[in-house]
């Protein structure tokens, strides 16, 4: 009897995990907003993307912690500015938690697959897409594979970029980011890499420091919400 109970328990547990993986974040309104043009002047945020380092195959994923708001903005853009999508998703705070895939009915799947991992920036953040300030950013990925680093794509206006993170014991850690030199850099020009092991479960305060023409520009501060899977 005890053994049977154990079997049933595992069956239900595995079923629930599977159900959790297959449920998707739904679009806030039913229209999906994306465009692909040979030349799009991109304007927007300093932070263009925050995602796991390596590109896997298949769907996009968002590492979704228990968040307070009921909406998430999900933005995908290519380095050369040709592809761009920006969509609002609704979050059912009771059921949506963990690594979850947003509904992404793209017409340009082949185009998206042709971009390398550093040529496509994914950004998911809590709140509305129209929000002026970026507050809480979620970790996104293409494919759902285990990885060791996150990359932050920065549109720096060709400044030198440093990333300031808080170490676990409260001290600040400053990392140098790398300027992209290859190809057209319309949407972003710099890539910063941070080890996942340096992130804590919960809220991670990050500052992007930009230095241009020998002077500091105002820092861009935001939080990375991260749950260890």
């Amino acid at each position: 009897m005890k053994q049977q109970f154990t079997y049933w328990f595992f069956f239900l547990f595995i079923s629930s995990v599977h159900a959790g993986n297959t449920s998707q974040l739904q679009l806030a309104d039913n229209s999906f907003n994306e465009n692909f043009n040979s030349n799009v002047p991109v304007s927007g945020r300093v932070i263009a993307g925050l995602m796991l380092e390596k590109k896997g195959d298949g769907d996009f994923f968002i590492n979704l912690p228990a968040i307070e708001t009921d909406s998430v903005c999900f933005r995908v853009q290519s380095k050369d500015g040709t592809y761009r999508s920006i969509n609002q998703y609704k979050v059912d705070s009771k059921s949506a938690k963990g690594v979850i895939s947003p509904v992404y009915p793209t017409k340009y799947n082949d185009t998206l697959n042709s971009f390398s991992s550093e040529e496509l920036a994914i950004l998911a953040f809590e709140g509305k897409c129209s929000d002026k300030k970026l507050n809480n950013v979620l970790v996104s990925s293409r494919g759902n594979e285990e990885q060791k680093q996150i990359v932050i794509m920065v549109s720096s206006g060709r400044s030198d970029v440093f990333l300031s993170t808080h170490k676990k014991k409260g001290r600040k850690n400053t990392l140098k980011c790398n300027r992209i030199e290859q190809g057209k850099r319309t949407a972003y020009d710099t890539i910063c890499k941070v080890g996942l092991d340096s992130l804590i479960a919960g809220v991670n305060e990050i500052s992007v420091l930009r230095r241009k023409s020998g002077r500091m520009l105002p820092p861009v501060k935001f939080n990375v919400l991260y749950t260890k899977s």
Binding site: S155, S156, G157, R158, R185, T186
Partner: peptide
């Protein structure tokens, strides 16, 4: 050698 900068947001040189 990369000569110039591709024009984009914030580029001034």
């Amino acid at each position: 050698t990369h000569i110039g900068e591709d024009v984009g947001q914030g580029v001034d040189k």
